[in-house]
Write a protein that binds this DNA or RNA. Structure first.
Length: 416
RNA sequence: GGAGGGGUACCGAAGUGGUCAUAACGGGGCGGUCUCGAAAACCGUUUUGCCUUUUACGGCAACAUGGGUUCGAAUCCCAUCCCCUCCGCCA
């Protein structure tokens, strides 16, 4: 969330940010009226409490006749507090629904078509035959079963068999090893179910519950990304400034409802209710966060470079930017069979937006407390990487050559 | 799931209805004195949030969380969460 005082004092700037994203700005009107109401109430309550405290002091000194007077005052306070509770609740709902402001370097745009390509690595390989999509390859090789998984669960679930399951595991190991051994991230194995407070900290709640799976009869939700548990590790903490930056990586399955995507990308591994991902999270001081956005993105790119998968990097335009992010780079891998670039990683700087929600601070050398900046990026989405390997490493007879970087984890050079 | 104990600051811990609890006491951290330097000792300091347009040597709030009783709650009552011990169950 944004700082209340900041919104109040920079209402035009916030309005501009909302407009750039294509959001309605009417929320700011309710913000203003509710905020003023809230502030007046706080003042009124504080004043009444001050008065009561003074009288209480005199009662303590023996002026018992004042007891009657303070009764009324207490009733008044109780009444005001009740109103304040409601106002505060309504106000919070508004406050938590205002998105982050796009960074000044983010290009203006309305749709994903307006995202700007800033980098392209390696040319897509030329095939002497028509390359097939990964779902055909996987099915023919018997390593990917998307029919039985529907029987077990529902559509948008898949199952790997034999070498396919091994390839998936190899990818997870390869990515985690790269990030821990080469890039300096600390590996975490977090819970896959988290509570509402945690989901609110990173911005999934209250606005985006429709896309989350919730466990019945509990306050637990299935994580849609490891970003949620990792970023919230230090919620309600004041970190030592010397301990920053903190770099975490984790492998987790991710669960998403993908509501509103009926009929879209139903085949293959692109859009699933459950998929594996290795995530990168960075917690920094505010001055470092944008340079870490570059580092983080290059850490994710390194996975594709080592797997020798062609990709491009785009910077998301204001209209395509996620709710909590200030700036986002998407990495898109080339899918030979599908004949297009597909998002495989999203690397974002949230500045202090998540830190405010999750209450994550650090202490400076001078002893002051400040909000940290948080960043995260996929490093990478495992299912899509799996698909990219199948499509880019296929042979004319439908075999898959294993990329060199994975051979130590696979023990074989070809899946056939 | 059953029985019992507990949740107070960075940590340990006291306080069990009004001598103001930011909070005793002990430890730790930070600053200083002493020292060539260090240790020890001594002195000082050490929560967070909100409101007052900025600021204050200003005000308010917070003792797991949320309600309640009371003129007044860390303290009494109710609910919820979490931790510990024992029993049962179990990967």
């Amino acid at each position: 969330m944004l700082e209340i005082k900041f919104i109040r004092e920079n209402i035009e700037l916030v309005k501009e940010g909302l407009e750039k994203r294509g959001y309605s700005t009417s929320i700011l009107d309710s913000f203003q009226s509710k905020e003023e109401k809230r502030r007046k109430l706080i003042q009124e309550i504080d004043e009444a409490r001050r008065e009561r405290n003074k009288i209480q002091e005199r009662i303590n000194k023996g002026e018992m006749e004042l007891i009657e007077k303070t009764k009324d005052l207490s009733e008044k306070i109780k009444y005001l507090e009740e109103i304040a509770r409601d106002v505060e609740k309504e106000f919070d709902e508004i406050l938590y629904s205002i998105p982050n402001i796009p960074h000044s370097s983010v290009p203006y745009g309305k749709t994903p078509e307006d995202n700007q390509e800033i980098k392209r690595w390696e040319k897509p390989k030329e095939f002497s035959f028509t390359p097939r999509p990964h779902w055909e390859l996987g099915k023919n090789l018997g390593i990917l079963d998307q029919e039985r998984s529907v029987k077990l669960s529902s559509s948008r679930f898949s199952m790997f068999f034999g070498k396919g399951a091994l390839l998936e595991r190899a990818l997870i190991f390869f990515m985690l090893d790269l990030h821990t051994k080469r890039h300096g991230y600390i590996e975490i194995s977090p819970p896959f179910l988290v509570n509402s407070k945690t989901m609110t900290g990173t911005g999934q709640l209250p606005k985006f519950s429709d896309d989350l799976f919730k466990v019945d009869d509990s306050d637990l939700w299935l994580v849609p990304t490891a970003e949620v548990p990792l970023t919230n590790i230090h919620s309600d903490e004041i970190l030592d400034g010397a301990s920053l930056p903190i770099l975490y990586t984790a492998y987790t399955p991710c669960f998403r409802k993908e509501a509103g995507s009926y009929g879209k990308e139903t085949r293959g591994l692109i859009r699933q209710h459950q998929f594996d991902k290795v995530e990168l999270v960075v917690i920094t001081k505010q001055d470092d966060s944008y340079s870490y956005l570059e580092t983080l993105t290059s850490n994710a790119e390194e996975v594709l470079k080592r797997l020798e998968l062609p990709y491009r990097v785009v910077v998301l335009c204001t209209g395509d930017l996620g709710f909590s992010a200030s700036k986002t780079y998407d990495i898109e891998v080339w899918m030979s069979g599908m004949g297009k670039y597909v998002e495989i990683s999203s690397c974002s700087n949230f500045e202090d937006f998540q830190a405010r929600r999750g209450n994550i601070k650090y202490r400076t050398k001078e002893g002051k407390t400040k909000y940290v900046h948080t960043l995260n990026g996929s490093g990478l989405a495992v299912g899509r990487t799996f698909a990219a390997i199948l499509e880019n490493y296929q042979t004319s007879d439908g075999k898959i050559i294993i990329p060199h970087a994975l051979r130590e984890y696979m023990e074989e050079e070809v899946i056939q």
